[in-house]
Design a binder for these strands. Structure first.
Lengths: 210, 210, 210, 210
DNA sequence: TTCTAACCGAGACGGTACGTCTCGTCTTAAT
DNA sequence: ATTAAGACGAGACGTACCGTCTCGGTTAGAA
């Protein structure tokens, strides 16, 4: 969507250099001045580009941000194309969640990701773009690892994989975004352990109790 | 915090009528025009108040919003002083999560709560206020119900209550805020079941049961 | 000066339509609401112009006013390019001073001219602009008429033409601005007669007295 | 007028200390920050007085200023109760006009007097007060000296004393207020000489003298 | 000598305008 | 024909004062 301009200029003549300069400037600026003070004028100035060039190709500031984050994540995505897979599900999930923690705690990504989340929260249109271009691909990667575990009998048969992913990553993202507590590796590990084991007592399932 | 003005005017002669008018106007307006188009000028105009009266007592638009949400939630808080407690933990948690789902889906609260979350995500100062005044009290209510279950042996001994709460409510809030999927009662139920039971297969814990 | 903006925008693309609308609005408004209640916001609104367009090209409200008065006076200036010249100096001066009286008493000019005088009195910078663009050209016109009279032997050899002009017009402007008395044609005539003849008694110069 | 409050408080209990503090603060402040930036709030703060105390006794900022200038000039007025009188009219007038020049050039009086003139120019009500309390008394002093000269045959019989005064002081005040030229003692002297002798050539009055 | 009505300092209030900033559109000049 | 540069109409920002309005606390003059 953010790539589909309002009235579709020829698009063939679009300057790739300008496009990259704008997205880079947007990403850098949001990291420097924060989301609230990010302005189109500043992005244009930083990118050495006329304002109109931005308005021509993106419908809103948020759309620029989505594309900016997308550009960077698409470079990485190839590298992180799959979750670790060592046959030890718990360990692999802890590695994956710790990676998420590291990324969210990375000062280079903190502001851009917060800005992205804000735009998504307020603009259903952008949320759709985000789901398709960023969320769904990553969700699928996670799903694959869990599906493999499920096939290996390492997950309960009744499990909904998407719910499982929500259970693992939801608390993390939530704590980071709302700052309701410190985002540490220990927390990530505990989430994995608790999610895998469940809240119910082990005992009542044990043979001795029967 | 949001009640502590910048340079602490005498506060004795503060107009309670103006305070309520401002908070009500802010809450109503954010619901009508959305967070992005919410302006201090409009709040002041709607409240029939000078802009300075807002700037005198609140340091930012976000602080007004926090107080606005607070004002409303404090009225309800007394009613919802405790989570349901019927000795059936799963059923009670489902009731509680369904209530959260209903609230998040309520069009009257949608915009204000999204705005609140945005402000918290970008302003650590406001996040602290939010934690103390809204998050922590509600967290304690949830903790109490879980603590009771824990004492009754309905929860695993090793469980960290806060992690448990995150596991239950985190996915909900996350899905709502980022619109990664529909927020239904079924989803709430499934979260409770999955969180209580865990992702691990029942079988490997209870070989004798096979 | 008032045409020289603070940091000199390119000025090539300056909108002539906006410029005229602003000056006309300023002139009209000061006549309607008076100098004290003349605001930049009202000028912008009346001119159908953004406030920034005013601030971009004029450093102060006073500078706008000077230009506004200038714009009108430059249209007239061509007509009034010279003082009447009938070889009867006294009659011509009376005609000229009566014209000044009529202008100062004209309700369309009263407020704008008072506002102009106020700005000049408080801003040496504006006073310089006024001197160069308005005062000096008019002064030269008056000088020319007096110079001609001087060459014709109708003025005392020792006369300083600028002092003569001050003597004729100073009392007029003063009485008008400070309202120390009614500004009538009779007063103008009397000024001319008194200034020409001097305060000294005629007698002591007469041969009979020697 | 400026002493007559709107709805006439009892005035008996009026604090003389506050009154003087306000007038002194107003006079000092206008000299420091200039007329445009003179505010009632600053006067009140400088005087250590509540704003209401100013609004209670004066209808406008201009009224305060008139009283402030009045307070100071009333102290001096007794000293300068009369113009110099040495039987040499020209010399006496030069002395008087030089005194006016000195006063207008005095940096302590420059801003207050400009402010006063501005208020008078824009508020007929204040102009009336000024005329009665300041202008007329000084006018009478000047009139007395000229009347004496007139009786002594040192002035033309047909002279209107008020016009004569305007001819002498008008150019001065005008040049000072509009900054159309430097205000020097030489200028004052020349005004006196020119006004006394008149613009007409001496010759045509005295053919026999050729 | 107490009462009490006014003035006093302080400053919060509903407003208006300030001068600045950014928005999204439109125009120009130069490549 | 697209770009960078940037002027434009619009309008919100946060600040400064406006003139009005309490609020307690003196401070007389009348009781």
């Amino acid at each position: 969507m953010s790539e589909q301009p309002k009235a579709a200029p020829s698009a063939t003549r679009r300057s790739e250099a300008s496009r990259r300069a704008i997205l880079t400037a947007a990403f850098d600026l949001v990291g420097e001045v924060g989301y609230a003070k990010l302005t189109i004028e500043a992005i244009a100035a930083r990118a050495g580009v006329g304002k109109q060039t931005i308005y021509r190709w993106w419908p809103s500031k948020g759309a620029v941000l989505v594309d900016a984050v997308l550009m960077l994540s698409e470079d990485r995505e190839t590298r992180t194309a799959a979750l670790p897979d060592t046959d030890d599900l718990a360990r692999d999930l802890k590695t994956a969640l710790r990676a998420t923690v590291a990324e969210l705690n990375d000062p280079r990504y903190d502001q851009p990701l917060r800005a992205l989340n804000t735009e998504i929260a307020h603009d259903p249109q952008l949320a759709a773009t985000y789901r398709e271009r960023l969320h769904e691909p990553m969700q699928e990667i996670k799903r694959q690892r869990l599906r493999k575990a499920w096939k290996a009998g390492q997950l309960d048969t009744d499990i909904d994989l998407d719910v499982a992913i929500d259970l693992l990553w939801g608390p993390l993202l939530n704590r980071w975004l709302l700052r309701t507590g410190p985002l540490t590796e220990e927390y990530a590990d505990r989430i994995v352990d608790t999610a895998l084991g469940g809240l119910n007592p082990r005992s009542w399932l044990l043979p001795g109790r029967l």
